[in-house]
Amino acid sequence: MPTRRAFIGGLAAASAYAGRGWAKVGHPAYLAAARDGTGAYRLFGLDEDGNGLFSVDLPDRGHAAAAHPHRAQAVAFARRPGTFAIVIDCETGRTTSVLNAPAGMHFYGHGAFSADGTRLFTTENEFDTATGMIGVWDVADGYRRIGSFASGGIGPHDVRLMPDGRTLVVANGGIETHPDSGRAKLNIPFMQPNLTYVSLSGEIVEQVEPEASRHMNSIRHLAVSPDGLVAFAMQWQGDVSEAPSLVALHRRGAAFTYLDTPPDEHRKMQGYAGSIAFSGNGAQVAITSPRGGLVQVFDVATARYRRSISMADVCGVAPAQGGFTITSGTGEIGRPDGASAGVLIQHDVQWDNHLVALHA
């Protein structure tokens, strides 16, 4: 996979691809953080088949990234609880801005841009009060922080822009953390996850909680279809032998629709879903479990389980034409076909949690 230097040097040869925004860096389909063979942390741009188009340095382990809708620019977030996020010009490989969480706060590893790319929204924890917050950053002014508002719960992890362009959906995981305690979970017996819809100005417009029997099922990661259907992946904080469904669908104004799995396949997930995505055509939704080494696929229209695919340490998943692309900590990138992982390519890296699809 090319280094930043090799990538920059190859730009001249690729001048036929030059254009606005992401076209300048070869039209990448995905972004993914990884640790390379030297132990360094990097953010990679990948094409649809998993080939590397570019890579840029990260100061520490990454988690997810937010891709600017128009510019070849990505915001890479530190693994939670982290206090930094860096803005990368993917054309030059330069870090153009550094986002530092305000005193008393930390990031949760995810963010989302407004549709016009003028604002970035970040999930944050005000840790002394255990209040979930959404930070607001002015992109044109060098990602200057211009405000924040409540996320509607504790431990907001993922955030996505809804298709209306006016609303964010937030996965409030319900888990209280504090940097003094590292990644320890401080409130499991009385945690309260929820799915919150909030306007870009901070007004909560809808909020849905799981029933009491599922209160230890932390809502963690989100996928949103073009028609506004939200899918979310959960991580069970109780005895894994008692874990309920780890994936659900939600449409505003309705209740959650839980997607159940055959008991034997469900147990293999070990109570943990790491990432979620709709298929390229929106007909299916998939969740991954690095603990179980498993991808599970469900039919959206019928809310029924379709199949499981085995891949060691699999976590990243994103839409692909006709299905999904998946990544693993072993360096593999696959395109599931039936029960096979359908490995496309092997890289000398350890892919981190998420594979971020670009829609440029």
Rank of each mutant, 00 (worst) to 15 (best):
N125P: 10
M133I: 08
L186Y: 01
R166F: 15
M162E: 05
Q350W: 07
S328G: 08
A273I: 03
F77K: 10
A78E: 12
G132T: 00
F232L: 14
G52D: 11
I219M: 13
A341S: 09
S289A: 02
T327V: 05
T96F: 09
M269Q: 05
T196G: 01
T129Y: 13
E265R: 05
P193V: 05
V87Y: 10
W351G: 13
A233V: 09
D337L: 12
G323M: 02
L31F: 08
G331I: 07
T177K: 02
A301Y: 13
A16E: 09
L195S: 13
I287G: 00
V300Y: 08
T83K: 12
A29P: 15
N51Y: 06
G274Q: 03
G147Y: 00
G322A: 03
P210S: 03
V314M: 04
Y108N: 13
N353S: 07
A273L: 04
I188T: 03
S275Y: 06
P179Q: 12
A301H: 15
G152W: 12
G274A: 09
R160K: 11
T95R: 12
Q207Y: 06
F256S: 01
P69N: 04
H266Q: 05
G173Q: 07
V136F: 03
A283N: 15
E265C: 12
L246T: 04
V208G: 06
A231M: 00
S151K: 05
R61D: 00
R183P: 15
D299H: 06
W351E: 09
D49R: 15
F256T: 01
A286I: 02
I188K: 02
P189A: 05
P263C: 02
D348Q: 12
G271Q: 00
T257H: 13
L294A: 11
H221T: 09
T123L: 10
V87R: 07
H70E: 14
T167K: 03
G52M: 08
H70K: 14
G142W: 01
T327P: 14
R214M: 11
M1F: 13
D158N: 05
S15P: 00
A64S: 10
F127K: 01
H221I: 10
T92Y: 00
R183G: 09
F232I: 14
V139G: 10
R183V: 11
A66W: 03
I219W: 15
H221N: 06
G182D: 01
